[in-house]
Amino acid sequence: MKSSAFQYELPEDLSAALKLLDSNDMDILPLAGGQSLMPMMNFRLAQPDILVDLNKIDSLKNITIEADSVKIGSMVRYCELEQSEIIQKHFPLIIHVIPYIAHSAIRNRGTLGGSVSLADPAAEMPSILIALNASIELSSSKNTRLVNAEDFFKGIFETDKKSNELVTSINIPISSSPKKFGFYEVTRRHGDYAMAGAVVTSDEGQDSFNETRVILFAVSTKPMRLIKSEAALNGNNLNNQDAISTAIDAVNGNTFESDLHNDEATKETLAKVSLKRAIGGLNG
């Protein structure tokens, strides 16, 4: 399994990369950490004419505080995210979830921007970014725009990003960092893609659910935010079993997608298990 032939470009800065993406109608793919794109190329699921390697673009590798939000460059690798003092201080949820993403050797190369751009429905980070009310910055040679994470993910490997655009940063409001969060995923082996998973966040107000977000992943074509579950929990005590049962029942009636190993009914069951355990594991 070797990739098909391509032309390799290694732009030194962002504007050169964006110009390449703009330049013609050939099949052009940006290469970030390569931990998903390289296998796809080896399998020949992706056969770009031109590969634009982003690894030399230093301006995409920073984590900075801007006003009241944290800006994470799209080429920040998971291992760097995990070691960042800014992320450790402001977003314990991200730090908690990173060890669930594949394995050390993968996290040493894989980038946040790559995961966001790929939009694998089984990936953790898209759901985490929705839980954190993040915005995705997209740049083309003509303009730059911000899209809310909830609107960005459209379907399986499908996002709001156009082919001439790059994800340049992920912006998370510091005030969105939840006081309590719960996370649970069902996997066959540590680090595998999840069969189902759930993240629950709450801005605790005197031991009750407050501004709760409930998001499922790996069970549908994209992250599934459960507004009804959130409504069922909000305002209730963290130990209110009736409210929690209502929130878990609200998983019913949503559209689940099967994968190679699990049919829709299994996904729905695993979604409920994940949500129950995520709520049960809420911590501060």
Binding site: L10, G34, F43, D53, I106, N108
Partner: peptide
């Protein structure tokens, strides 16, 4: 050759990487 088995894992600049998921030019 798709990053799952770990047999090609080696050290690059002090970190482990999958050498099947990197191009030689990188």
């Amino acid at each position: 050759e798709h990053g799952v088995c770990g047999a090609c894992t080696l050290d690059m600049n002090g970190q482990t990487v999958r050498s099947c998921l990197m191009l030689a030019v990188q």
